[in-house]
Design a protein around this nucleic acid. Structure first.
Length: 371
DNA sequence: GATACGTGGAT
DNA sequence: TATCCAAGTAT
């Protein structure tokens, strides 16, 4: 790895920061350097786009304005504030970290990246972001943007999908980061990566740092960063049970680990938990098995019927759910002693933390009912 | 060091 | 529709 001369580093910093001073985005978490504000925004922004985060950030700050408020929040309120954002362990870890801050650090934020990483949910990237933005430490914040921008500037061929590659970029950025304005430097790289130096359709020709961009100068910017592909999501078949009772629809709270942990959905039954080879069965047979399985698990007897031909489809990072809707109406609310759930009127759905897949199921159900 | 973990936008 | 990408972390 050949690094730049100090003269070139100085020129790069000046060009980058001058551009940032003129063109930086006005974002809600850029109004001050409060570590709580920086932290919440950085956690929300993990694998999530800015425009998605903004309304969540504003609501979250209104409900949980301080570390102490977050530490003391009931988990149901926490999950409701996060519902729809995804990666729900982020918010549970954030509450753990808030409690760590109060109990282990007397409410005083540690200011180094190493100490920050001891807090739940704060890894190397987020530690670098908080240390640099909130505390002015010359610490790289190596996110997807930094990988892409520096891979192009230096034509780095290491595969950014591999964990050990992070060290290469960390060491490189450590050499070129502005010691006077490390937080602005890191944020400028992120703004650059989401404007001129995007993954697809970059506009390197108008980038403020085009003369430092070796991949652009060589006409090879689309060759960087090098990143191996991930496997596609595997299809998983489910039935969703829409159980209507006089006091509302039946919902269950999902287990405290795994997909959508502790969020609420209507009961979902995996086809391959009904039988070893669901693809060999006819649909009516699988529906009957669903009722059997549900009765065995909950003590609740049902005679559900199919209500729609086309399944609801919802794709996660590594699973693609195909959900067939079943419907049954009960004359009275069943005994819920052996079931981690409750019945809820549609007007009260807002009391629950509902993932997007549940909203899709409900939308489809409403459409089908109107026909 | 692979893999699990959500969602929305762009093409 | 399929695919990839977006301010990653925990296990």
């Amino acid at each position: 790895m050949q690094y730049w001369s100090q003269t070139k580093i100085n020129a790069f910093q000046k060009t980058l920061l001058t551009w940032y001073d003129q063109e930086k985005r006005d974002l809600p978490w850029r109004h001050d350097h409060d570590p709580y504000h920086i932290w919440v925004s950085e956690i929300m922004l993990q694998q999530t786009q800015v425009q998605t985060v903004i309304p969540y950030y504003q609501r979250f700050m209104a409900v949980f304005p301080t570390v102490a408020a977050l530490a003391a929040a009931p988990e149901a309120e926490l999950l409701k504030a996060w519902a729809g954002l995804g990666y729900y362990s982020r918010v549970r870890n954030m509450q753990k970290a808030a409690q760590q801050l109060i109990e282990d650090y007397q409410g005083i934020w540690p200011q180094t990246a190493n100490e920050l990483q001891k807090l739940a949910g704060i890894g190397p990237y987020t530690a670098g972001a908080i240390a640099s933005i909130a505390f002015g430490q010359p610490e790289p914040a190596v996110d997807g943007n930094a990988f892409r921008v520096f891979a192009r500037l230096f034509e780095i061929d290491a595969d950014i999908a591999k964990p050990q590659t992070r060290q290469i970029f960390y060491d490189l950025i450590k050499e070129v980061i502005s010691v006077e304005r490390p937080g602005d430097f890191n944020q400028a790289i992120m703004d650059l990566g989401s404007s001129y130096m995007t993954a697809k359709n970059p506009d390197s020709a108008h980038s403020p740092v085009r003369e430092f961009d070796q991949a652009y100068l060589d006409g090879r910017e689309l060759d960087y960063p090098v990143k191996t592909k991930k496997p596609r999501p595997l299809p998983v078949d489910y039935f969703a049970l829409l159980v209507k009772t006089p006091k509302g629809y039946l919902f269950e709270q999902r287990p405290n680990r795994g997909m959508l942990a502790e969020l609420w959905t209507v009961p979902l039954i995996k086809w391959d938990e009904l039988t070893a080879e669901p693809e060999t069965k006819l649909l009516p047979e699988l529906v009957a098995l669903t009722a059997q399985q549900f009765a065995a698990n909950t003590g609740i007897q049902l005679t559900p019927a199919l209500i729609g031909g086309k399944p609801v489809s919802h794709t996660f990072t590594h699973q693609k759910w195909q959900i067939t809707l079943l419907y049954v109406e009960l004359a009275q609310v069943p005994d819920l002693s052996y079931f981690p759930g409750r019945v809820v009127m549609p007007a009260d759905f807002a009391e629950l933390a509902l993932p997007k897949v549940q909203l899709k199921i409900w939308q489809r159900y409403q459409q089908l009912r109107q026909q």
